[in-house]
Amino acid sequence: MSASLGIATRSLRNIRRLPSAFIPALLMPVFQVVSFSGTYAGVTQMPGFPTDRSVNWYLPMAVTMGASFAGLGTGFSMIRDLQTGFSDRLRMAPTSRRQLLLGPYIAAWVRACIAVVLVTLVGFALGARPVGNGLGTFSLFIAGIGMATIGTGWGLGLAYRFRDMRAAAIMQLTLFLGLFLTDAQTPIHLMDGWLEFVARWNPLTRILHVARIGFVDGIGSADLLIGIIVMTLAAAGAWGFALTGLGRLDD
């Protein structure tokens, strides 16, 4: 465990030493919640829209996006470590592969917490208000950490496989597309055409429901359960993807 904590600490120190690598990933979801809530304020007037506050709809999307990109950030760092040879030195150390993997995960969770808290605060400042008993904010946080876990596994897995900056482009593009091909902009029942089908079957839609449950009407406990199951399976799959990728470095 100490090896994992050491790797995580090193990764977190890089936030201070190399802020240009972290700040954009932090500002992007802030910009997203600010701009989407204002630009698309009118969508709440669509009959059947589940909230009268646009920021309630767009805040969870920005939080999951920010958290997942905080996770991808560890993938970018891993590419740098692979190229400089630092990663090879770590692999020669008498430490298990799982420990080596856990380090970036811990760093990603801390980064994600920063992103989730900041974006949520901005959302609240813009007028976001939880519905019900307020537990939705906790659910939003869980969804954020879940997406950070998925993003980390996905980013690390690609970094280990490509070992250069091509992986960075692929990890960003796939996650960006994956999140936008959900009900990110409007609810599924208000869509028309191809996106309705894609969003309905996109597993990330279910995770967005976990994030949204406390901010909009119409998402029930069954949706929450399905969302958590999907999130757990996706996180496990991403961990496996990263672990097999790490194993491939030995080939």
Binding site: G42, Q185, T186
Partner: peptide, 15 residues
């Protein structure tokens, strides 16, 4: 493509 599908019904909102 995304907007055309997501905001198809938004064309009926006031304004």
């Amino acid at each position: 493509a995304l907007g055309t599908s997501a905001f198809a019904r938004a064309i009926n909102i006031p304004g």
